[in-house]
Design a binder for these strands. Structure first.
Length: 491
RNA sequence: CGGGGCGUAGCGUAGCCCGGUUAUCGCGCCACAUUUGGGAUGUGGAGGUCGCAAGUUCGAAUCUUGCCGCCCCGACCA
């Protein structure tokens, strides 16, 4: 074995790093905290992006692009927003380099200091709302439904491939509406788009909920989120959708004339998911042999591996496989025929398992004689002999089955890891033992949430949208509570 | 920024404590042959500013000092 993966049991974070590197999703880069997304990883992102983009357009949004740089003064216009992001902003102060007079190579030219420094966007609310001011005058200009695919920079102290990098790729939707209700509806609609995408395509079960004040986006009135559970029992925020109220409209003075010719501030939303989803995908499904990718997002859905001795046999196998490859293509299935003779079949088997390809087909002379092929599925590692007649259709059905199986497995795990806690001791021992979401009563105060975080490192992941009202006592303070919230240690 | 670990060929490493011929081993790479149904085997070969700089010494991968970088744990966060 040339590419050993650390087992999950031995070291979960090392397992994760090994997978990302060895499956060829990404590489470390020369810049600390920044990663290189390699072709295989980017293909995965493209599949996610294309699917989300389609859903955004179906719900009436248009793509646009705003600048990478934001004038420093913009950021400070919304008080909570600046406070939330100030600590992690990269700042451009100069616009020119020159050769050092003492021969120390190239240096920043002190003469070329910017009049107003530029922030590299950590998110684009400010530059966008500055723009919306000039785009919106009348109720006829609303709603304004814009999305952008972009990179952003947040100067995090500690980074992890895909999960938290200094620069990352994402999409950010920014919408403007005439009424509060319309904006709230938009916020919830996009949350549902995310949730459906996560469950249907990523095979990732999520809890839809609202964030507590502590966890809310800087500048939002309400932050909605989808929360997923990873195999190590830690939660991961997979997407957020914010109801921004009139905060940014007021900060950037964006008003519109309504039908009665009254000037009103507009209502706003913003929503985003990032390349972090790739991290979620990996940690939710994969195993000690490598990635397990859901068929709907896998860059390669089916790999075909020939087994032969000599050129004569290879020619026979090629002939058979070429027909099958065309059948797959006709069905819109992404298929790779790996006839590279410098690798032996066993090596390829392990390699494509590492890469999480959902279905592997092996075809040799023995199979051709019997008109069959060996079909192996990545999710449960089982193999079966399948007739070559109509094999593309057989595998198409199998891919659908795999998609469902991966989701069911993740959902079962998730459901088994939502546990109710009634006492503080129970709460703590659940966190330290079983992990996962803990459903518990909370008195609703930031102080208590803060205290719990300090004592246990667990945070309130969300208040589920479909929560039952249930009177109880706060897990920490014993004060009265009207409903349970979900706690977890999180990424 | 604190605490811990590390830097030797593309990757992973031995050697360092106790300085001394040509820097160890595995994987990978190149050539050829035999191979090909779960990470092939043999033979031959290429590949190194031992993180950087200064110092000690006849002599430094090894000792001293300074610097740089990376990883893990924490504080911060999607």
């Amino acid at each position: 074995m040339s590419k050993e993966i650390t087992s999950r049991e031995k070291d979960y974070s090392q397992w994760y790093n090994d997978l990302v590197i060895k499956a060829g999703l990404a590489d470390y880069s020369a810049v600390r905290g920044c990663m290189i997304i390699k072709p295989y990883g980017f293909a995965l992102w493209e599949n996610m992006r294309d699917q989300l983009d389609k859903r955004f357009k179906e719900t009436g949004h248009q793509n646009a692009y705003f600048p990478l740089f934001i004038p420093k003064s913009f950021l400070s216009k919304e008080a909570a927003h600046v406070e939330g992001f100030a600590k992690e902003c990269a700042v451009v102060t100069h616009y020119r380099l020159k050769n050092d007079e003492n021969g120390n190579g190239i240096v920043v030219d002190p003469e070329a200091k910017l009049e107003e420094e530029l922030i590299i966007r950590p998110t684009s609310e400010t530059i966008i709302w500055n723009t919306y001011k000039s785009w919106i005058q009348s109720y006829r200009d609303l709603p304004l439904l814009i999305n952008q695919w972009a990179n952003v920079v947040r100067w995090e102290m500690r980074t992890r491939l895909f999960l938290r990098t200094t620069e990352f790729l994402w999409q950010e939707g920014h919408t403007a509406h005439a009424t509060s209700q319309e904006a709230i509806d938009e916020t919830v609609q996009m949350l549902n788009v995310y949730a459906e995408f996560a469950e249907e395509y990523m095979a990732l079960p999520v809890v839809k909920g609202v964030k507590s004040i502590n966890e809310r986006f800087a500048g939002a009135v309400d932050t909605y989120c989808i929360e997923a559970l990873m195999q190590d029992g830690k939660a991961l925020q997979a997407g957020t959708s914010h109801f921004l109220g009139q905060n940014f409209a007021k900060a950037f003075d964006v008003k519109f004339s309504d039908k009665e010719n009254k000037l009103e501030y507009v209502w706003a939303t913003s929503w985003g998911v990032s390349t972090r989803l790739i991290g979620a995908l990996i940690m939710a499904h994969s195993d000690d042999d490598g990635l397990v990718l859901p068929p709907k997002l896998a860059p390669i859905q089916v790999v075909i591996i020939p087994v032969f001795k000599g050129a004569d046999q290879k020619a026979l196998v090629d002939e058979k496989v070429n027909v099958i490859v065309n059948d797959f293509k006709a069905l819109g299935i992404s298929v790779k025929y790996d006839d590279d003779d410098s690798r032996r079949p066993g090596w390829k088997f392990a390699e494509y398992e590492m890469k999480g390809v959902p279905v592997r087909i092996a075809i040799g002379m023995r199979d051709i004689e019997n008109n069959i092929a060996e079909v192996a599925r990545r999710d449960d590692k089982t193999k079966q002999s399948v007739s070559l007649d109509g094999i593309a259709n057989t595998v198409k059905v199998l891919l659908e089955e795999i998609q469902i199986n991966i989701y069911s497995k993740a959902k079962k795990f998730r459901n088994e890891h939502i546990t109710q806690a009634e006492t503080w001791d129970e709460f703590v021992s659940l966190l330290d033992g079983k992990g996962g979401f803990i459903s518990a009563h909370w008195d609703g105060t930031s102080e208590t949430e803060e205290k719990i975080k300090e004592l246990t490192k667990a945070t309130i992941r969300c208040i589920p949208l479909d929560n039952n009202k249930e009177d109880g006592k706060c897990i920490l303070t014993g004060k009265p509570s009207r409903e349970r919230v979900l706690f977890a240690r999180a990424y």
